[in-house]
């Protein structure tokens, strides 16, 4: 198995896509080789916030190791719900910073390639040897191993409250589809979807996919931003939360961390959407659900 890098600098860094490419070898992707850490660290660029505490590498590495240890006997997917909020709280990034793919490239290749292999090594078919898809190391935010967790936490937290993130990550289909669609950029929509999962209205991966597809299609004619307005965006709590990183203790391992004290999504807006989504979900076909397979259609 791919191991912990044999060289870890003190600070996180940026790794350009092109530089990352040379390390995505077959050996790494099949979990047989390590990343040449010293060479890799020569090709990095420093973070813009290099001087701040949140640029320290150790806390992130420790978090990842704890995740692998805690879920060593479990399915690795179970670690997502644990790691996502804690990674988010440990890194304390702005969206502007998080949109830089080089940051995630470095995390995957320079800090924790062993985690990426542990979490994403999978066999495509029974005959083929298991392999990690290259885009788990270097790829769009919705597939990259760490970016997807961070964005899940960013889009599904309710201000300082990470609980919806845990629910959301419990369903891999949710994690895979929700980050691909723009509708989840509207916080009440994201939270109402989680609420339907909590209620058990949607349970299986197919149901989640059907729900997200129905929301995405209906959002072409319905402006959920108007039906269910969110609180006005305010950047100050986030800035204060990031500044507080200098004096913040390590991310709690047992309890959920506390996010930036942004205003929570208006309860009424979430309620309105919960009812509305339940209604459109009831009318949507779900693969494997009897009424869809019969193909009779008709009003539900």
């Amino acid at each position: 198995m791919t191991d912990k890098p044999n060289f870890l600098p003190e600070r996180l860094a940026l790794l350009a896509d092109l530089n990352a490419a040379q390390y995505l070898t077959d050996g790494l992707l099949s979990g047989k080789e390590d990343v040449p850490a010293i060479a890799l660290n020569k090709t990095t660029e420093p973070l813009p916030h290099d001087g701040e505490s949140r640029a320290e590498l150790d806390p992130v590495r420790a978090l990842v190791e704890d995740a692998m240890y805690q879920f060593r006997d479990d399915r690795p997917t179970a670690a997502d719900g644990w790691l996502a909020p804690r990674l988010h709280a440990a890194l304390r990034l702005t969206r502007r910073e998080a949109a830089d793919r080089r940051f995630w490239n470095y995390l995957a290749l320079g800090v924790a390639p062993d985690y990426v292999v542990w979490r994403h090594l999978a066999a495509k078919s029974e005959d083929a040897p298991p392999k990690v898809a290259a885009r788990r190391f270097r790829g769009p935010a919705y597939t990259q191993a760490f970016a997807r967790l961070w964005w899940a936490a960013e889009l599904f937290r309710d201000g300082p409250d990470y609980r919806p993130v845990v629910t959301m990550c419990a369903n891999q289909d949710m994690l895979n589809t929700a980050l691909r669609v723009d509708v989840m950029d509207h916080r009440p929509t994201a939270l109402a979807t989680v609420r339907l999962m909590e209620r058990g209205t949607v349970r299986t991966g197919r149901e989640v996919n059907a729900l997200v597809a129905a929301i995405n299609a209906s959002a072409a004619t319905l402006m959920y931003d108007v039906v269910a307005p969110d609180a006005a965006r305010d950047g100050k709590p986030l800035r204060e939360w990031i500044e507080a990183a200098e004096s913040a203790p390590a991310v709690p391992r047992r309890d959920l961390p506390v996010g930036p004290y942004e205003e929570k999504a208006p309860e009424q807006s979430v309620d309105v959407l919960v009812d509305h989504f339940a209604e459109i979900f009831a009318g949507a076909p779900v693969r494997g659900r009897p009424d869809a397979d019969e193909g009779t259609g008709g009003e539900v």
Partner: peptide, 14 residues
């Protein structure tokens, strides 16, 4: 259209 292939009720769709 085949209703069973509608991801959402036609009323909410474009």
């Amino acid at each position: 259209t085949d209703v069973s292939t509608h991801p959402v009720r036609a009323q909410f769709s474009g």
